[in-house]
Design a protein around this nucleic acid. Structure first.
Length: 221
DNA sequence: CACCAGGCAAGTA
DNA sequence: TACTTGCATGGT
């Protein structure tokens, strides 16, 4: 019998406590960090954001005024810097043209409608959109990432072949629609995934170890 | 040295 | 629709 999602949350929260995500100083930093961190270590993103901060570019109109070639060089440490510079400009265009650069105005749009708009921006997929909605906007969008997939599949709670929306629905149908809960839950899944899923293939010392199925963790294909 | 990290879009069949 | 490939730096 699977544990409930609340039982999993309580176990993780007891082990790790509040994670204080997202690591950023403003909603705008969350927005650009969400693009820069795609398939990239956060450590690299910090270098890029520090460089933008040094040039006072952590503001929508200022950053949108930077030519794409200059933006590429500023964000080079994140990797994929050419495509990500263009993705940043795409989302800045969306923000400036439709909301005059105001995140507050952007988040006046309801969750579902804003999510649809964000997904029209080239370079914003489901995870990036939900990260922006939840961690920049405080809206109840559950963020699914590689850690989420790995932790759930290893316990057999979902299949390894489950897609983004199957995993997201697993949470949305089993939890109250509470942004603070979604915020903490995702951050806790990242923490347990980082600490255990790679370093300890048999889940030694993991706070979720006793929630494993008989025979131990499932393995990918 | 190889391998991976808080994805996404474009190309192919 | 369902795979596959390109994108790229920095840490282990």
């Amino acid at each position: 019998m699977h544990p409930t999602l609340k039982e999993v949350f309580d176990r993780l929260y007891a082990a790790y406590g509040p994670r204080h995500w997202w690591p950023a100083q403003s909603p705008f930093e969350v927005l650009i960090g969400a693009v820069l961190v795609q398939n990239t270590a956060w450590q690299n993103v910090e270098k890029a954001i520090d460089r933008l901060r040094g040039d006072d570019l952590l503001e929508p109109h200022a950053l949108y005024a930077v030519p794409v070639e200059e933006l590429e060089e500023l964000i080079r440490p994140v990797g994929y810097f050419r495509i990500k510079a263009r993705r940043l400009r795409n989302v800045l265009e969306f923000l400036v043209d439709r909301y005059d650069g105001s995140l507050e105005a952007m988040f006046q749009t309801g969750l579902a409608e804003l999510r649809e708009g964000l997904l029209q921006v080239k370079g914003i997929g489901p995870e990036t959109a939900d990260s922006i909605l939840l961690y920049a906007g405080g809206l109840p969008a559950f963020v699914v990432d590689a850690y989420t997939h790995r932790v759930l599949a290893r316990h057999g709670w979902i299949g390894f072949d489950a897609d983004y929306y199957q995993i997201q629905d697993y949470f949305l149908s089993g939890l109250p629609q509470d942004a603070a809960l979604f915020n903490e839950y995702h951050a806790l899944l990242v923490e347990v995934g980082k600490r255990h899923c790679h370093k300890h293939p048999r889940c030694e010392g993991c706070p979720l170890a006793e929630m494993l199925p008989p025979g131990g963790p499932f393995e990918p294909d």
